[in-house]
């Protein structure tokens, strides 16, 4: 029994070090890039086949573009961003951005569970539904559905027809919950030290340039961000010299400042320069540390 347990632990440890398939779930085009892009790219570098499931169509966030045109452009841009990170394929679910509150959580769960069973990931990235003060609630709904999907995908009695067409139950052993660093308590340990995802940081120095390239690909959202900042400042009698002329170079500079600072925030209180923060559940999520047998 002891040997079995140890063997299982070592197998899980090995899997943790070298994921074969990574499934990234994102509510919108920017969130997974800004919060997890560097870590995803590092896994792709180590040979993982990474897939992105993008839940909404991002139709709302643009500057002077119709929802239809916005959705069309962002779809292309998110494909480019994903490629820059080494993601092999993007699966677009196409829900209307900002309207997830009216989508059945069960429907969303089952659509995500479909991809879990289809792709059989060892690692899953999902928006942290417990992160507080996150502005876009689509991220909250997506994270919640993804968390449920991970559970449902492993249980045979969820969507039995999936199994009939060859999609057998699949258990994802490693989870990375990501969120923009707006929650003042995000780095506090969770309520228990076992069975619950805990805060971790991952260094992204080697992949930061590709994360930045991915972020720059999101031109529609970036331009909207720059124009909205400029307008807010203008409306209140202020200006940002960088945005006196909002051209490609100015927007790129703004994106780079944003990403470097986010990576610096991720690295705060660690030995790293550039990092990303997660709530992580891996082997310890299944077996508390105190029950693990150290190798002799």
């Amino acid at each position: 029994m002891r040997i079995l347990l140890l063997a299982f632990c070592l197998a899980a440890r090995a899997a943790a070090a070298d994921p074969k398939v990574v499934l990234v779930v994102t509510a919108d085009a920017a969130d997974f890039v800004h919060c997890a892009g560097g870590t995803i790219a590092a896994m792709a570098d180590r040979g993982a086949a990474a897939h992105l499931v993008r839940v909404t169509n991002d139709e709302k966030d643009s500057w002077r573009l119709s929802p239809e045109e916005t959705a069309r452009r962002v779809r292309e841009e998110v494909e480019q961003a994903a490629r820059a990170l080494g993601i092999q394929k993007v699966h677009h679910l196409g829900y209307r951005a900002g309207e997830l509150a009216s989508v059945s959580p069960t429907e969303l769960r089952d659509r995500l569970a479909f991809y879990v069973r289809l792709l059989k990931p060892d690692v899953m990235f999902l928006p942290n539904p417990y992160a507080e003060y996150v502005e876009a609630l689509d991220r909250h709904y997506t994270g919640s559905a993804a968390e449920e999907a991970r559970r449902a995908a492993a249980l045979a009695n969820y969507q039995p027809p999936f199994a009939q067409v060859g999609l057998a139950p699949h258990y994802v052993p490693e989870l990375y919950y990501y969120a923009a660093p707006v929650d003042p308590r995000r780095r506090e340990p969770e309520s228990t030290a076992t069975f619950v995802p805990q805060p971790v940081t991952r260094e992204i120095a080697a992949t930061f340039d590709r994360k930045l390239r991915a972020a720059l690909a999101l031109r529609t959202i970036n331009f909207s961000l720059a124009m909205r900042i400029r307008q807010r400042l203008e409306d209140t009698g202020r200006r940002l010299p960088l945005l006196d002329t909002v051209d490609d170079a100015a927007v790129a500079k703004l994106v780079e400042i944003n990403l470097r600072k986010l990576a610096a925030i991720g690295a705060e209180k660690t030995a790293f320069q550039l990092a990303e923060e997660f709530h992580y559940a891996g082997l310890d999520y299944q077996i508390p540390q105190k029950y693990l047998i150290p190798p002799r």
Partner: peptide
């Protein structure tokens, strides 16, 4: 006003000027 942009709020505070 810019708390939703954790990567930019400090930069905006430092570099914004009055018109």
């Amino acid at each position: 006003e810019f708390d939703h942009l954790p990567g930019l709020k400090e930069y905006l505070r430092q570099h914004t000027v009055q018109r």
